[in-house]
C-alpha cells in the first residue's frame, strides 16, 4: 500500500512561468482550462495544443515529470477515447469489425475529447509544477478576497489547505509504517471479502487516526507558541507583485489566445 502523492509536486527552476505573479498564473490557467471545453474544431485544437506545449517549453519543467503527473488519469483518457471511437456511429464508415463500425466522426470525437482534456490536465499540472503550494494558496486566497468581505473564512481555508498539503507526506509515511508493523504481526490485508477487509483495516485506521489527532494537537500548540492568532493581523513574507512587463505580457497573451480561439470558432 504505497501512497504516491502527485499533488503539489513543485519543480524548482527559474523560468518565465515560475516568475509569474501566482495570481496571474492561476487566473490565466483557469481561463485556459475553461476555454478547452469550447474547443470544437481542428484549428482550435491545434491552437490549444500549441499553447499548452509552448507553455511547457517555457517552463523548463522536464516533460517526463509532467507526463508522470498526468499518468494516473491516462486510463480514464484511453477509456473515453475508445468509448468515442466505438460508439459514435455517425459519419463515413472507415473500418467495420463485425457489428462495430469505426467512423470518421468517431475518430474525430475520440481525438477531440481526449486531446482537449489532456491539454487541460497538462496546463493544470504545469501550474502545480511551477508554483509552490504556499504561493498557490496565497494566490487563491487573494483571488477569493471578495468573498472574505461577505464573511467567508477565506484565510483560514487557505491556511488549512497549506497545512493539509504539508501533512500529506507525513501521514502517508506513517500509514506505511503502521502497515509494516501490523503486517509483521501477521495482519493479512489480501484475499479477503469486503467485511473481513473492513475489519482488517481497524488495526491500521485506529493508529493512523490517533496519530492525526496527535499531530493536530501538537501543531496547534506550536502555532500558538509562534503567535498565530488569525489571518487579520498578519503580514506576508511573499508579497505578490504584479509586474507590468512580465505579468502584463501574460495577461495580453491570454487575451490574444482567447481572441484567436473565438475567431477560429466563428471562422470554421
Amino acid at each position: 500500500m504505497a501512497l504516491h502523492v502527485s499533488v503539489g509536486q513543485y519543480y524548482s527552476a527559474d523560468s518565465p512561468i515560475h516568475r509569474l505573479d501566482p495570481r496571474v498564473k492561476l487566473a490565466a490557467a483557469l481561463v485556459y482550462m475553461v476555454s478547452c471545453f469550447f474547443v470544437s474544431n481542428p484549428a482550435m485544437l491545434a491552437l490549444a495544443g500549441a499553447a499548452a506545449f509552448a507553455l511547457m517549453g517555457l517552463s523548463h519543467v522536464p516533460a517526463r515529470l509532467m507526463l508522470r503527473s498526468v499518468k494516473p488519469i491516462m486510463f480514464f483518457l484511453v477509456f473515453t477515447s475508445l468509448f468515442n471511437l466505438l460508439f459514435v456511429q455517425t459519419g463515413a464508415v472507415l473500418v467495420r469489425l463485425g457489428p462495430v463500425a469505426v467512423t470518421d466522426a468517431g475518430v474525430w470525437a475520440a481525438a477531440l475529447y481526449t486531446l482537449r482534456f489532456l491539454f487541460l490536465l497538462l496546463v493544470g499540472a504545469l501550474v502545480m509544477c511551477t508554483t509552490t503550494p504556499i504561493a498557490l494558496t496565497d494566490a487563491a486566497e487573494s483571488l477569493m478576497k471578495p468573498l472574505a468581505r461577505l464573511g467567508a473564512p477565506v484565510h483560514d481555508v487557505a491556511l488549512v489547505m497549506s497545512i493539509a498539503l504539508r501533512f500529506v507526506p507525513t501521514l502517508a509515511r506513517e500509514a506505511e509504517n503502521i502497515v509494516a508493523a501490523q503486517t509483521a504481526r501477521g495482519a493479512d490485508l489480501e484475499n479477503k471479502g469486503a467485511l473481513a477487509y473492513a475489519r482488517a483495516c481497524v488495526p491500521l485506521v485506529v493508529p493512523l487516526f490517533a496519530s492525526a489527532l496527535r499531530h493536530a494537537d501538537n501543531l496547534g500548540r506550536a502555532m500558538d507558541a509562534r503567535c498565530y492568532t488569525d489571518g487579520a493581523h498578519r503580514t506576508r513574507y511573499h508579497v505578490m507583485r504584479f509586474s507590468p512587463r512580465r505579468d502584463g505580457a501574460a495577461v495580453a497573451a491570454t487575451a490574444l489566445y482567447l481572441f484567436a480561439l473565438a475567431a477560429m470558432a466563428l471562422a470554421f
Binding site: G8, Y10, T132, P133, I134, L159, S162, I163, L165, R166, T170, R214, H215, N218, L219, R221, A222, M223, A225, R226, C227, Y228, T229, H233, R234, T235, R236, Y237, H238, V239
Partner: peptide, 28 residues
C-alpha cells in the same frame, strides 16, 4: 518542541521560518 514534524506549517523551509515574523505583522 520535541517533534519537528509537528511544528512545520508549510512545505518550504524559508516560508516556514517566516511564519512567526508574519504573525508578528512585520513589514515584508
Amino acid at each position: 518542541f520535541q517533534h519537528p514534524e509537528d511544528q512545520m506549517v508549510t512545505s518550504v523551509v524559508a516560508d516556514d521560518v517566516a511564519f512567526g515574523p508574519e504573525n508578528l505583522a512585520l513589514p515584508q
